[in-house]
Design a protein around this nucleic acid. Structure first.
Lengths: 144, 144
DNA sequence: CTTAATGTAACTAGAGGTGTTACTCTTTCC
DNA sequence: GGAAAGAGTAACACCTCTAGTTACATTAAG
């Protein structure tokens, strides 16, 4: 997984929206749960809106809601929405092409990174937001 | 995958050692292929020595060699040797525990990260250094 | 018109990683 | 025994990236 907190924070945000059961939730409230600045929350949610995982409503009484049921949102969808450059490590790798190994290793590694990424995403695809929500269930008393 | 070049550079180094067919290779030569500073190479190789993937020989005529056959070295071994903190993103994630969602989400995400990591490592385990070396074959003429 | 909200820009600070310089220690060879 | 060639490691500077922050424009409801 990448070293930043975007994926973790995004799953948290979506789990919070699921927990709020359809209400339009303002970014300040989500930020209080994640314990960060609301602008950070809006930036991440912006990417999730673009990925059609979340809907945004502007104006007074505005806020965010899930764009689909928790069952229909996989953690792979979330990951892809907030990690646009998962292969940055390989992108920064620039071997010496005058060396016969250096000349070919990047293409070989490209294949390796793609497979590793696919393995990781396959596992994330098997987990939905509903699964996450289910594990939160003991706290979702239905009244807020 | 993480955002740094350690894994890519390490696979490159090991492939280079395989390409050199058992000779003790000094870090300066490997560095020329990777196109970086020899000290960077020695730092990475130090981790690979600790993981018993590589042997180091000090002194004049010293250098590095593979500690095992390319067949016996999987890319999962390499990944684990050079990425001591693959879950740094989750480690930095610190939600508000006063919120019921925030109180439980880290443990849930821990399970998600472990599964995702296992999926990625399962793919890496299926690729050996021999496979990488095989893809380099058209340049490994046997004479150097 | 006020209030509550999103959206976005721009800046700063900090973490992490690479590159670099410098040095010690080890080993071989003459 | 001293020179040379090598590993091992420390410490520092610089760069990249991300999160946190401030500020403001825009949107929408009441």
């Amino acid at each position: 997984m990448t070293g930043n907190t975007r994926f973790a924070a995004s799953v948290h945000m979506l789990a919070y929206l699921a927990y709020r059961a359809g209400a339009a939730v303002p970014s300040a409230e989500i930020a209080a749960s994640v314990d960060t600045n609301p602008v950070v929350i809006r930036r991440l949610l912006s990417a999730l809106v673009k990925a059609r995982l979340v809907n945004a409503t502007k104006g007074a009484n505005g806020g965010f809601t899930l764009a689909s049921t928790p069952q229909n949102i996989s953690l792979r969808d979330v990951y892809r929405a907030v990690e646009p450059q998962p292969q940055r490590g390989l992108d920064h790798f620039a071997p010496n092409h005058k060396c016969p190994v250096g000349a070919k290793i990047s293409n070989i590694l490209q294949g390796v990174y793609v497979k590793a990424q696919a393995g990781m995403e396959a596992e994330l695809a098997r987990v939905s937001l509903a699964d996450v929500h289910e594990q939160l269930r003991p706290v979702c008393t239905g009244k807020h």
